[in-house]
Amino acid sequence: MLTINSLVKRRGSQQILSGISFEARPGRVTGFLGPNGAGKSSTLRILLGLDRATSGSALIQGKPYAELHHPLATVGAALDGSGAHPMRTGRAHLRWIARAAGLPRSRVEEVLELTGLSDAAGKRVRNYSLGMGKRLGMAAALLGDPDILILDEPVNGLDPEGIRWIRTFLRKRAESGHTVLLSSHLMGELAETVDDVVIIKQGTIVAAGTLQEVIGRHSSLEEAFFALTMEKAGDGV
């Protein structure tokens, strides 16, 4: 369970998040949608304890990230890129994370297999394509077999096969009772994967609910998204 409550983030005079609240529940895939620069990544970074909130809270199973006893067994996160040093091999990257989390080395080979990276594991990360980097990020997120997955633009840069794999994988994850929160700006991909939708625009939530509730009388999620985000932009002009 992820709980975001009245979250505000200011950086200098810039207001990035203006008091947003939403939840991501177990057994469901929650899609966090919004245009670039709407505050999606900032929200996820605050949730993971990487950035500080100006006020409000972002809790994981009721606790801030820094208070989790086994963070990697609780939350798996994949943000920008692979999150690895370019000069390290994919395997070496996963091995140090496994060591930090007290996981056996065999687990590294398991997630490499799971994400289809076994053959590329000995290559340095700087030689990876965008899709391979994403897979490595996923592999790192899955190391601790966490209850919760937090993924920033997970399908970005993946080939059709990779997108299909992610979609099926996340569905299975949710069906077995796990919590999945993913951000995206790709409506088509999202509509087929998510149960719940949260739409953010300029640091404010403009819609939240089940996929059906958010689509409402619109013909598709994409239509609903543009109707909701444009409307607001129109008001400002």
Binding site: R45, Y65, L79, G83, H93
Partner: peptide, 21 residues
């Protein structure tokens, strides 16, 4: 060290601080 923009421009620090909170 920032990853190249082709691979998404991340940095290892995010991984480090999620692994050791």
């Amino acid at each position: 060290v920032a990853e190249s923009s082709e691979t998404g421009g991340g940095q290892q620090m995010t991984t480090s601080l999620t692994a050791v909170s």
